[in-house]
C-alpha cells in the first residue's frame, strides 16, 4: 500500500479523526508551558527589559507565517503533480491560519518595536517582507473565494502559489537591497553566538513546538471541514443528476 492511500478523502477523515483531539491537547499543553514559563519564570533582559518576553509569541508566529506558506506550496505541488483533492483542500485550509500568524507577527512586532525603536512601524526589511507576505495571503484567499468550481480554483490557486512563492523570495531580497534595517538578527540560528541566551531559549522552543502543534491541529480541523463541504457539494450535485 502506498503512502498516497492516506490522501484518499475517506481514509484521511478516518485517520485524522483520533488525531485532532490529541494534537489539540498537546498544543494547549505546549503553549501553556512555553508561555507561562517564558512570561513568569525567565529574567528580564538587561537591555530590553520585560518587553523581550513578547518573543514567545512573536518568534513562533513569524516562523509559522512562513512555514504555512511553505506548506501551501508543497500541498499545491502535490495537487498539480498527483491531483489529490485533500492536498488542494489542505492548502486552502492553511491560508487563513498563515495569514493570522502573519498578522500576529506584525502586531507583536509593532508592540515590541515601540519601546525598542521608539516607533510602531518602520520600513525595515523584515517588517516589509511580512507585510508583503500578508498581501500574498490576501490575494491567495481572494482567488479561492472568487472561483466557483473547486477544481478550477485548486488549479489556479496552485499556479498562483507557485509563482507567488518565487516572487515572495525575490521580494525578500529586493526589500533587503532597498533598505538595511533596524531588526535584530535571527533569534534562532545554528550559529551559537547569534542565539538568544539559554534561559530564554528552552521556553521559546516549547512555545514554538506549541505553535507548530496548534497549526497542524487547525489545518487538520479546517481540512476536514473542507472535505465535508466538498462531500455535501458532491451529494447535492448527484441529487440534481438524478
Amino acid at each position: 500500500m502506498s503512502i498516497w492511500e492516506y490522501a484518499n478523502p475517506l481514509k484521511f477523515m478516518g485517520w485524522t479523526a483520533p488525531l485532532v483531539p490529541v494534537l489539540s491537547v498537546l498544543a494547549a499543553v505546549a503553549l501553556s508551558v512555553g508561555l507561562i514559563w517564558g512570561y513568569f519564570f525567565t529574567p528580564d533582559d538587561y537591555r530590553m527589559g520585560a518587553s523581550v518576553k513578547i518573543i514567545y509569541i512573536h518568534v513562533p508566529s513569524a516562523m509559522m507565517a512562513i512555514n504555512a506558506w511553505a506548506m501551501m506550496l508543497v500541498a499545491s505541488l502535490i495537487w498539480i503533480v498527483r491531483r489529490h483533492h485533500v492536498s488542494a483542500l489542505a492548502a486552502k485550509a492553511a491560508a487563513p491560519i498563515g495569514m493570522v500568524m502573519t498578522v500576529i507577527a506584525l502586531i507583536t512586532g509593532a508592540i515590541w518595536g515601540q519601546p525598542m525603536w521608539g516607533t510602531w512601524w518602520a520600513w525595515d526589511p523584515r517588517l516589509t517582507s511580512f507585510l508583503i507576505l500578508f498581501l500574498f495571503y490576501i490575494g491567495y484567499m481572494a482567488m479561492w473565494a472568487a472561483i466557483e468550481n473547486p477544481d478550477t480554483a485548486a488549479d489556479l490557486t496552485s499556479v498562483l502559489c507557485l509563482v507567488g512563492s518565487v516572487f515572495a523570495i525575490l521580494s525578500r531580497y529586493a526589500v533587503n537591497f532597498w533598505n538595511q534595517g533596524l531588526h535584530q538578527g535571527a533569534s534562532l540560528s545554528m550559529d551559537a553566538e547569534e542565539n538568544v541566551a539559554d534561559v530564554f531559549w528552552v521556553p521559546l522552543l516549547v512555545a514554538i513546538a506549541g505553535f507548530v502543534l496548534l497549526f497542524v491541529a487547525l489545518v487538520l480541523v479546517r481540512t476536514r471541514t473542507e472535505i465535508r463541504a466538498r462531500r455535501l457539494h458532491a451529494i447535492v450535485a448527484r441529487e440534481r443528476m438524478g
Binding site: 478523502p9 472535505i227 448527484r238 438524478g242
Partner: peptide, 16 residues
C-alpha cells in the same frame, strides 16, 4: 445522459 453511479472516473467519487 450520465446518471449517478454509472461508471468509474466519476465526479468527486472520492468524497462519497
Amino acid at each position: 445522459k450520465a446518471r449517478a453511479g454509472s461508471g468509474e472516473g466519476e465526479f468527486d467519487e472520492a468524497f462519497l
